[in-house]
Design a protein around this nucleic acid. Sequence first.
DNA 1: GATCCGTGTG
Length: 693
Amino acid sequence: MLKLLSSSSCLPSRLHSRAASAVRTGSSDSTVPLLRVLNSLTGFTGKSLNLGRRAFFCSDSSDGSEQVVEIDVKGSESGAESKSSSASVPMNPRPEEYLTELGSEIQDSGVTVFSVPILTSPTSNSFGIPLAIELIEKQHWSELKAHVQDSSATTLLHQLFNSEADPEFILRYFNWSQKQFNVSHTLELTCRLLHSLANVKKYSKIRSFLDGFVKKTEKHSTSSIFHMLSMSSNQFCSNSIIIDMLLLAYVQNSKIQLAFEVFDRAGDYGFKLSALSCNPLLCALVKENRVGDVEYVYKEMIKRRIRINLFTFNIVINGLCKVGKLNKAKDVIGDLKVWGFSPNVVTYNTLINGYCKMGRSGKMYKADAILKEMVENKICLNEITYNILIDGFCKDENVSAAMTLFKEMRKQGLKPNVITYNSLINGLCNDGKLNEACCMRDEMLSLDLKPNIVTYNALINGFCKKKMIKEATKLIDDVRNQGLAANVITYNTLIDAYCKDRKMEKAFELHGLMLERRVSPDASTYNCLIAGLCRQGNMETARKLLEEMLDKGLKADLITYNILVDALCRKGESRKATRLLNEMLKMGLSPSHLTYNMLMDGYCREGNLRAALNVRAQMEKEGKHANIVTYNVLINGYSKRGKLEEANMLLNELLERGLIPNRTTYELVREEMMEKGFIPDIEGHLYNVSCSH
DNA sequence: GATCCGTGTG
């Protein structure tokens, strides 16, 4: 009734070759229990062809050994027997039932999908399942190998699933056979394995299995995994746990996009995830600056009633703070209180850090307000709190305030660490206090706190800012003597200093040195060098360097293009710069306000106001609105050409748009205005005296 | 079983 296909002239050519190989691989004693066939029906993506009374099923086996069987739909035993070379199939209980289902499924649609593994009959040789299990248990692999060949590896796996074998042994065999025969078992079998492990609560085994699974597998789409998993068991709880672990495995293997997809689809399937996996996902999204996705996951977690905890809130707050969404971060603090949590030291540290990193003046005042709230709520400051504040004050150019905190920190019995010192050294260096900065480094050494590369980079930067590049370069030797290695930031700092000092040979020397020492230059390295060459007007070499950069697989970024656009515009070659702008857009890079403004300025200086306006139109088309610099550039362009009416119109336009003119805005027009009898009124609007009379 | 802090450049 069911038999191996021996040969067939009616198969389409594509299938024919598969059939031929099936004949070679399938031994003549292979049989296909109907139960297996039916099991396979539940889920598979392959193809079947309905050819009258017979259907040919082509297995989707990923190991390359295609197996084809022929099924007589009508179930006529005699008809099947007419093909003498096919093997007969032992009948399972109530075969008629299966055949009826099978037949109708095939006849209903021209394309039905399922796989048909071919099993070697266990009775066909002396090797039985109990022996196999024993060998697997004892891990006598070489002995097992004597009994299992390429073609029967999957067969045995099926038999193990059907036996009462310990899922852990099945797992062992699963892994061994994949490695041994260099095959990947099908997704269907993988899901069966996961479910059998979940049934006996072997979660750590599932975890490590999934780790391997996500490491090598790129071929299974998220949707096929979900589909197959839910097809192979309707145990909702197991499915949720498996998916939860899969999500975590993706995150731990830095496959964040896949993890995100799993999170999303778990919602469609209604699988319940845990904070154990969702929190790391959130963390990864924060690290990748995908704040929109962070907000989405957070909202979904609440909607799906995932048991969120304080970690969840803190991670989300950090994500929001990182991109300056301080108000939203405060909203989340409100949320966490509603959920019955209280902000802890990490919550406050995160928020304080958020304010410290904000570019605005008075940021430390805001940070201080949070600090007060923290103290009121009896949350003790820790080392990190102090480090954040010390760094914040240093960046706010208030090193003395930072030093006060430094002292207070120690008075509180908290130990400053490398980060504390690095912040202070950096602050002192930026303040030009190199001696004090060096003293701090010595203090570190005396306290047995090892300065690291960050420490030295701060010092090197300090020397560079003071144009003491020779001294700065010497520090590279110090770095080596301390057993440290200069990194890309070290080299970039020095290269940039030499470029600014117009010592391009020296800069390229360092570039060579970093290559020699196997420190890979990054886009910034090239940007520094390209900017240096542009400053010298050496556009040709700059172009060449850009090509070298691209050849190395580094991507030219916004900065690279801005450097080049700026240089071309300064040279009066705005047209060439426009070509670069289009190149950027083609590369999917979004030009910044600066890019457009430089271009407009270039055209204005060339007297091509029409071209400048075209740039502005393009800018608006790309969704970037003119800012105050844009207006200043255009106003300057018009007033320099004596077109005061237009300049005046632009000034009114910017006021109408709610932009705030700055000093430059007025200075650009004032002189000419006065000369020509225009006077600016108190509010900045201009009117023509001669017209008003 | 995890969340918060430090370096450079256009």
